[in-house]
Computed example of a mutant assay.
Amino acid sequence: MAPPNTTITLTRALTRDQQARRERLVKAALDLAAEGGYTSVTMHDVADRAGVARATVYRYFTSKDHLLSEVSALWIGQVIDELTASELPADPAGRLAGMLCRLVEVSAENRLLTEAILQAATSPDPSAEASHQTFAYTITIITDTALGAPEDEAARAHFRDLQTVLGHVLLSGLLSLSHRGRSTEEVQELMRTAVRLVL
């Protein structure tokens, strides 16, 4: 028996139709976020855009931030695919700076979507935890691709520290880009400086 005040979450596999409906909801939320930012994503409008009843949205997502965490995973996955497939500088520091600068550029090109994703990623809503994990995953993939994952434990510990620092710098840079009106070039320079200092 679970102790008092414990939340137990039951999960079940989705049928093919349910999975397709869920993906349609995420795509509808992504489109709404890209068009109008965080405030444009409401469960009502997502349901309308996806062509389902509003109650259907709540069958798959407990909150708006939960839904946006899935939007974040979808969009960042697409961006990471582009970054890892692109031609990068030969030196590790150049590769890392190049990937981070391109991520900043893509975020600037999709400023309203970036704003919505960041709002969910910094939300205290427990259901948005996936957004926090997605952001950490982004830095992990970028650093692993650019630098190669180290093999010995001491180097791995240092690498995790590097990822943590770069993650915080990237989050700060993207927030200043989407919320404070800093230019793409300023934020890219911040990322180059961070890479130079940590490496």
Rank of each mutant, 00 (worst) to 15 (best):
155 A>V: 11
185 E>F: 05
126 P>K: 13
152 D>C: 02
105 E>H: 15
97 A>W: 04
32 L>M: 03
74 L>W: 08
39 T>P: 00
4 P>N: 05
8 I>G: 07
19 Q>P: 02
132 H>D: 03
164 T>P: 02
45 D>T: 10
62 T>G: 05
144 D>Y: 13
33 A>N: 04
66 H>W: 07
14 L>T: 04
26 V>Q: 03
133 Q>S: 09
173 G>D: 09
82 E>Y: 07
179 H>R: 15
51 G>E: 01
41 V>R: 01
55 A>E: 06
63 S>N: 09
142 I>L: 09
19 Q>L: 13
108 A>L: 13
78 Q>C: 03
65 D>N: 13
90 A>D: 10
151 E>G: 08
66 H>L: 01
199 L>A: 10
55 A>M: 09
37 G>I: 01
117 I>H: 02
180 R>P: 00
41 V>C: 00
79 V>G: 06
126 P>I: 05
128 A>V: 02
170 L>D: 04
91 D>G: 11
106 V>R: 12
16 R>D: 14
39 T>K: 09
93 A>H: 05
195 V>C: 10
113 L>R: 15
148 G>R: 12
194 A>F: 12
43 M>I: 11
196 R>I: 01
63 S>Y: 08
72 S>F: 15
102 R>C: 08
173 G>I: 05
67 L>Q: 09
58 Y>I: 03
36 G>S: 06
188 Q>S: 07
71 V>Q: 07
65 D>E: 13
101 C>T: 10
167 G>K: 06
134 T>C: 02
85 A>N: 14
24 R>T: 14
39 T>W: 02
144 D>H: 15
10 L>C: 08
5 N>S: 12
100 L>H: 08
184 T>I: 06
72 S>L: 15
73 A>P: 00
52 V>N: 09
112 L>S: 12
38 Y>F: 06
151 E>F: 10
168 H>M: 14
147 L>K: 03
184 T>A: 05
147 L>A: 11
177 L>N: 13
197 L>M: 05
51 G>L: 07
73 A>T: 11
159 F>L: 07
16 R>H: 11
107 S>A: 15
11 T>P: 12
145 T>W: 03
163 Q>V: 08
21 R>C: 07
124 P>Y: 04
88 L>A: 14
141 I>A: 15
22 R>T: 05
129 E>M: 05
190 L>I: 09
181 G>I: 08
106 V>S: 09
146 A>L: 11
138 T>V: 10
178 S>G: 09
154 A>S: 15
177 L>E: 12
175 L>R: 15
116 A>F: 00
106 V>G: 07
125 D>Y: 07
53 A>P: 01
128 A>P: 04
64 K>P: 01
60 Y>S: 08
62 T>E: 10
4 P>V: 11
111 R>P: 00
171 L>M: 07
27 K>A: 15
186 E>G: 07
83 L>F: 13
144 D>Q: 14
45 D>W: 04
109 E>N: 12
48 D>P: 00
139 I>S: 07
143 T>K: 13
32 L>K: 04
11 T>W: 13
